[in-house]
Design a protein around this nucleic acid. Structure first.
Lengths: 347, 347
DNA sequence: AAACATTTGGAGAACGTTACCCACGCCGGT
DNA sequence: ACCGGCGTGGGTAACGTTCTCCAAATGTTT
């Protein structure tokens, strides 16, 4: 590991050029794998880079070209589903020249805007927005400024690519599973949504729609029972309390997300009930939590990793060609039946 | 929200200067709250900035001065304890000019080095390294290049500040709690550590030491029983299997981390046992998982949020004055007794 | 009134890299 | 011989900000 001659100053492209006896332009070309550098030149420059321990400054690069940095916006770091997506992105980006940096978002539109702006200000080459809550207008603005892929939000745009799970179908899988077990009164805890655009684009809305559609399709229209809270543990807890207070209790609860199902479990435990003995319970996301043995929650696997891989792929594609038409990747969810669902007690 | 005159080009400091009828130097001074700008100048420039919707380019800033970016290195995004630390950092940084960006680390030294390098390449103003595994030498090198705070690693350095939990004392709390309940054979699952430096600096090693020390102090030297695996769910599972196969089973298990305790619960469930009926179980970290009602794991609260707040504070201090002597903040852990610990069965 | 600080503003040179051009030499085909 | 094309290399001007001076105006002391 060679030390640089001057103790303080960073090694620059000029040092490399001098050391290799070539121009800075030549070094730059090699760095970017750009056209116009002969094989000899390549090895010569690379040797010099190695010998001096040179690493390009992203700041300087950002002023003219790329920074080889990709930003990921996460809404909630604690939700393991997002970690899965992130793993996929990381996988795809490994071995590329791109470095991934992420930021946790603050769960409000203003904060989301501030963060995307911060990423744009830092000359990032591309953005992956995971389950953003910003207005469609805002997303378009961002995407027109920097290559962007939106994950976990339906609807298509001419400006950004999307990667989603087929939430409508996923909800259907849960209903089918529970109906097959013999349940007729299957309640659903949804995330309250008023905004008309989000009512179409947000996964939670799609799941609620899918639930209603599937209930009707199975001839269980009478068993439709929806509680609107939020996709949080707290929301699940409160939702379950409402459901448990019904005159006629549902025999099964389909929570719109695993985190919601956790809140439901809380409420059940508190009420001295357990799943599936007293009530069947299903979630959505197949988080590590759901997979955890003592919990063993029936849920829907979104293949978060696959979503991440696709998002990264689409983003790299778009960085390479900003003009290509946008794509919408929709992945198929799969039911993971575990131990919180069973035939209803009275059957 | 005014649009910029040219459709494409970003608003620069030159535009602002022209619009305000001042020099770019003046604008720069206002942006940095630097000395030499009168109050009138300040308002005048700020108005122009507002009117044009100007935001400075971090890339350009990075070439001369600060980027107002702080990097956080997380070893494992799924561990909720790190999320707590991150919350604390975010809290402290909110309202400051600094933007936080994080990267997940790859759990090996090479990957950690690559990431810190990437952050340095991007001219970040400061780094917060959470539970890094790099060699001490490497940490020093990084810290000499950029202001750095190391979280969750003992030992002090003249180059970086540290924020830790008193892991030694924390382990003592667990042993005291279990001893008081009447346990005499208390096993511990530790993270295997060979490197002599890490054996002193890593929290896991401190916990194991604290465990041994406390066992002796309570006159339970005969009950010392340590299994070395890893701080993962898998490690907990394997460790518990070993312990359950003992001729004389321990009546309590102190897992070195909540994630390890989860693995233990897996193994217990598999063996048809439960805590605390058959065996008492304690973790460490007070993750959201431990707090979750149906789990209700006895654990140690590290006040991750406080650690994060302190780390951010120290980092901002150091950015302001790189010459100040380093500080070591050590926070006191607290026991959180929940439902997985009780008096041993045979008592 | 002169000398000296202090405050306020600006001019201009970095910072490290890449984009855009142009020059050179070497081909092959008129 | 001449011409166009291609492969190769380099010169140079950006990019947007801050930093280092310097000058003018204003205030303060002798």
């Amino acid at each position: 590991m060679p030390r640089q001659s001057h103790p303080d100053r960073r090694v620059t492209i000029v040092d490399v050029a001098r050391h290799a006896g070539v121009s800075t332009t030549a070094v730059s070309k090699v760095l970017r794998n750009a056209y116009g550098a002969s094989p000899q030149m390549q090895t010569r420059v690379r040797t010099a880079i190695e010998e001096l321990g040179y690493r390009p400054s992203a700041a300087a690069r950002g002023m003219r070209g790329q920074t080889y940095t990709i930003g990921v916006l996460l809404p909630e770091i604690r939700n393991p589903f997002f970690a899965d997506v992130l793993d996929g992105v990381t996988d795809r980006l490994n071995g590329s020249d791109y470095q991934l940096l992420m930021a946790q978002c603050c769960n409000d539109e203003a904060g989301e805007a501030r963060l995307t702006d911060a990423m744009i200000d830092r000359s990032m080459d591309g953005l992956i927005l995971i389950a953003p809550i910003s207005s469609r207008r805002r997303l378009q603005t961002v995407a027109r400024t920097v290559p962007t892929v939106v994950v976990g939000r339906h609807g298509n745009s001419p400006d950004y690519d999307t990667v989603t799970d087929d939430d409508f179908a996923g909800a259907g899988l849960v209903v089918a599973h529970l109906a097959e077990l013999g349940h007729r009164h299957i309640a659903h805890i949804e995330h309250l949504e008023r905004d008309p655009v989000r009512l179409v684009e947000m996964p939670n809305a799609q799941r609620a729609d899918g639930y209603r559609h599937a209930m009707n399709a199975h001839g269980l229209a009478d068993g439709i029972d929806v509680v609107s809270t939020t996709y949080t543990q707290e929301g699940g807890y409160l939702g379950a309390r409402q459901l448990l207070a019904r005159d006629v209790r549902p025999t099964a609860i389909f929570a719109g997300a695993d985190i919601v199902a956790m809140g439901v479990l809380d409420a059940l435990t508190e009420a001295g009930l357990s799943a599936p003995r007293d009530i069947s319970l299903a979630g959505y996301d197949n988080t590590t939590f759901a997979a955890f043995g003592p919990i063993s929650l029936t849920t829907v696997d979104q293949a978060g990793r696959q979503m991440g891989v696709n998002a990264a792929r689409l983003l790299l594609d778009r960085i390479a060609d900003r003009a290509r038409p946008t794509a919408q990747v929709k992945l198929s969810p799969a039911l993971v039946a575990r131990r919180t669902t069973a035939a209803p007690a009275g059957r």
